[in-house]
Structure formats: C-alpha cells, structure tokens
Amino acid sequence: MRTLSKRGKIYAAAASIALVAAGSGAAYAYWTTTGTGSGGAANSAGGGTVVLHASFGAGLAPGNSTAVAYTADNSSNTDTVVGALSATVSTSDPTNCLASWFTVTAVTSNSTVLGNSTGTSVGSGTLAFANNAANQDSCKSATITVSVTSK
C-alpha cells in the first residue's frame, strides 16, 4: 500500500470535509406551509356607570341666574369619559312653582373621570329663574332640582 505525502493527506482531509458538508446539506429537507389563526379574550366589565351631580347656590329669585357646577363620582377601578351632558329642572311644587319658569344649560367638557374618584369636574352651566308677569311667590319656599344625565 502506498503512503500519502503530507500534501496528499491535506487534500484527502479537505475532500472528506467537503463531501461530509455537501452530503449533510443534501440530507436537509423541510416542508413549507401557510396558516391562519386568531385569539381572543373578554375585556373587563369595568368602566361602570358614574354618578353625576349638579350644584348651585341657594337664594335664586325671579330675573336672576346662578352658575351650576357638574361633577362625577366613579366607583369602578377603570377610567371613563363623560360625554355630552343634558340637564333638566324640576321643583318641589310643580303645580304652583312651574319648572318652565327655569332654564338650565350644561356645557360639556368630555372629561376623563379616573377610577375610584369623586368630585371630578365634568362641565358647567347656568340656572336662570325667569321674571314672569305672573305671581311667582309659590317658588319662595320651593326646592329647585337640576337633574343631569350623560350620553
């Protein structure tokens, strides 16, 4: 048997490495495919209902007006936004002290009400008592209530 020279051994080793590399590359196979999918989870039921309040000064008389402050309390742990406000007036004596003698406005601020907060300002307005030619004495001891809702 013939012995390889040092140079021959190097060529033989290089050829062996090349064959192994080429052979392992040829043995590698794979599949290709496409796919679709989805995932989902229910959101929390948070962001519950806020409680709205209207406050204004006492002592309103015919021909006068007073500022109204609208605030909100949020007992849930989720922030929410109070949108358009709508206000109405009622009286404790609707037969003699007519609600139609009063007008109220509600300027909306689209305010964020943080979770677990109270007294957050959400708007303002004006409550006015019309000065009618009719006798309005029945409103002297009546309680005026401003109710506010949000959409």
Rank of each mutant, 00 (worst) to 15 (best):
A72D: 11
Y28Q: 06
S38C: 09
F102A: 03
F129D: 12
N64D: 15
A14M: 10
S5T: 15
A72C: 05
Y30G: 05
A128I: 03
V148Q: 00
T105H: 04
S141D: 05
T118M: 08
N43F: 12
A67Y: 05
A41N: 02
C139P: 04
W31A: 11
N77A: 15
A142H: 05
A45K: 15
S44G: 15
S138D: 06
L60C: 10
G119Y: 02
A106W: 01
S55C: 01
P94A: 00
L60D: 00
T71W: 02
N43A: 14
T145Q: 05
I10V: 15
A27N: 10
G119Q: 03
G25R: 01
Y70N: 09
S121H: 01
T80G: 08
I144R: 11
D79C: 03
G59M: 08
A87R: 02
G83L: 08
T103H: 09
A133P: 15
T78I: 15
V20G: 05
G125F: 13
A22V: 14
G25P: 04
T78Q: 14
A27G: 12
T36L: 07
T78N: 12
L114W: 08
A106T: 06
A99N: 09
S150Q: 15
A106Y: 03
T126Y: 13
G40P: 06
A99V: 09
R2F: 02
L19S: 11
K6T: 04
S109H: 11
N131Q: 14
A26I: 07
V107D: 12
D137K: 10
A12S: 04
L60T: 01
T33V: 00
G47A: 15
T95K: 10
V51H: 07
I144L: 14
S86M: 08
V68I: 12
T112L: 13
T112D: 09
V104N: 09
A99G: 10
K6W: 03
L98D: 08
V20L: 09
S24Y: 09
T95N: 05
N96C: 02
G123P: 13
F102G: 03
V50C: 10
T71Q: 07
N64V: 08
G125P: 10
L85N: 05
G125E: 03
A22H: 08
W31F: 14
H53E: 05
R2S: 06
A134W: 01
G35T: 11
T33D: 05
K9Q: 00
V148W: 00
G8F: 08
F129K: 06
A130W: 05
A134P: 00
K151E: 13
K151F: 06
H53Q: 14
N131D: 15
A18W: 04
L85P: 04
S75K: 14
A61F: 07
G57N: 12
T108D: 10
A58L: 00
V89F: 05
A18M: 02
W31M: 07
V50Y: 12
T71H: 01
A14C: 08
A130K: 07
G83D: 13
S111W: 11
S141E: 01
L85I: 10
A45L: 13
T145I: 13
A14S: 11
A42S: 13
N64I: 07
N135I: 10
N132C: 03
T91N: 05
G46A: 12
V122F: 03
L98W: 08
S111G: 11
S141M: 01
L52A: 15
G57I: 06
G57S: 15
S124V: 09
V51M: 05
S65C: 04
